[in-house]
Amino acid sequence: MTWRKTAARVQLAAMVAPALLLIGVFVFYPLLRGIRISFTDWNGYSQHDHFIGLDNYRKLAVDPNVRTAFVNTLLYGVGSAVIQNVWGLLYALLLNRNFFGRNAARAAVYLPVMVSGLIMGYIWYFLLQYSGGALNDARSLFGAAPVDWLADKHRAISLILFISSLQFVGQAMVIYLAGLQRIPRMYYEAAEIDGIGWWSKFRHITLPLLSPAIMANVTLKLIGGLQLFDLIVALTGGGPGFSTHSFSTLINYTYFTSQNAGYSSSLGIALFLFIMAVTVGVNRYFYRREVEH
């Protein structure tokens, strides 16, 4: 009997083993290796590197470009989470109703989610281009002067956020639609009998019962925004100057262009710690709220 139990355990362990092996070799091991590289001055190809202790971390703490990238990453993360959640919820409320064209509208909002962020960024170039771009073309119809859309730092960041949200808001919408459909109708019917207005119904029935969807959407959009990479590469490449870089694009730049692998690795570790802290914090917050309710 004990032998059979051991055999069963070995079987179960063997079923998890391939997955653990792959994740261990290609995710955890590189992460450890990255921590080691982050304490060196390695250039990315040489056979030799030197241990330089915490120098890379001291450098990144005062690097103005890292500071910009950090603030931008936070903007992309929080911005995506807020914009896409509000926008997606409004869409879900609108498209949960029965009307002509509902399915077509849902499909149209969701379709851009299928497209690679990089390709969508390149396509937007046709709209944002200074001469001949679709947006400036439309402006000229009203006699307005053309705008160099991505030349200004603040406008460029806002546009990156807007374009990314326009593309991916369909994801949030779909999750909210599924959440709405899980709310039992009888709650609303009971509220109607009591003569409760739509705002109160939204505030006291819809919103609380949507909390699993809200939690999923906030976490997804926050993590997605904090990792934003391909759209920035396609639209601004981090420019003008370093002003629209995210942490991810700065890591790419530091490694590829400046060939500073040690420093780039320390940026990677910093990004990982940052995202972990934010995710854990957000999950704790939602968990505590759930317990309270």
Binding site: V27, L31, F229, N252, S264, G268, L271, F272, I275
Partner: peptide
């Protein structure tokens, strides 16, 4: 773990 954070190693 963001892809870019471990891309060097």
């Amino acid at each position: 773990i963001p892809t870019l954070s471990v891309i060097v190693p």
